[in-house]
Design a protein around this nucleic acid. Structure first.
Lengths: 149, 149
DNA sequence: TCAATCTTGATGCAATTGCATTTACATTCT
DNA sequence: AGAATGTAAATGCAATTGCATCAAGATTGA
């Protein structure tokens, strides 16, 4: 086994700590305004983005990076609160399509007003333009993840 | 309200996604080996680092970035599993000092064997030396608290 | 065709978390 | 000293999560 390089440990520590601290500051903003958490936002965004045909839970799951049962239960809550509708699926009797409701659209927008401002505060105010660009590139390289936004 | 700059949104999205993906890969490694999760590791590391005098829960809490009750319950489990000992506190009758046990030391080392290797795999293999250095610096800059006072 | 298999999604149950509060001791102020 | 206030830590209860499994419908293949 290779002993980990100190700089790599420092990268991981900084990544884990900073992402958590920023995440919690943003969530605190939402909660202070009586709004639900970011996992609701992410789900609403994906369902809204899917448009009038909706999206199936199994297709939503990898976008949200959640286990299957967590996706199922998150959707339960969104449906219960009238933010999303389940529609019977013509082409597959097991499943259903998820479509955003007007109320869901409104909530997503209201959350974005705060969320976007929080991102601006947390990221925009601490990094210059070139720094932000470099950071985004290095992070994507680290995750080998396609840019989702 | 300021509309958030697209590059800032992309930084935040990449930060949130990548940290989560890497975190889950590391946790999966630990779980596959039958080892506990990173929150246990973090607590063991801080208690071990505190040495023979131990550390008080209220001092541990900010290091672990956990709420008070979560710290209390995490410690319950570590004590229940014989990894950490609670010792009555001479200077303050309300509290106690936490000291690592031999068994706790062994577990932390065993976890580190895997954890360190996982860091090396996730970080070391995807970034060059200068890239890692730059990333660490940018992340730390991002985490600096925007002083509101 | 129809049994075997796979996929989608839900769910029972135990463990964990979040919130609010409590308990116990310490400190401060008069 | 003793009441008021502050701080350390635990805990009751409801909500959420994780794990394993199940149920229902789709697909495959003899």
């Amino acid at each position: 086994m290779t002993t980990p390089d100190d700089i790599h440990v420092r990268v991981w520590t900084a990544l884990a700590t900073v992402s958590r601290v920023v995440f919690e500051r943003i969530e605190a903003d939402l909660k202070a305004a009586g709004l639900p958490s970011l996992s609701w936002y992410d789900a609403l965004r994906e369902v809204e983005r899917a448009g009038p045909d909706g999206i199936r839970p199994f297709a939503l799951r990898p976008k949200l990076l959640l286990p299957q049962y967590a996706t199922s239960r998150l959707l339960d809550r969104l449906v219960r609160d009238g933010l999303v509708e389940r529609r019977a699926c013509v082409e597959d009797g097991r499943g259903h399509s998820l479509v955003i409701t007007e109320s869901g659209r409104e909530l997503r927008q209201k959350m974005w007003d705060l969320y976007g401002a929080a991102i601006e505060r947390e990221i925009g105010q601490t990094l210059s333009g070139p720094e932000a660009k470099t950071l985004a590139e290095l992070l994507l390289q680290l995750g080998r993840v396609a840019d989702p936004e």
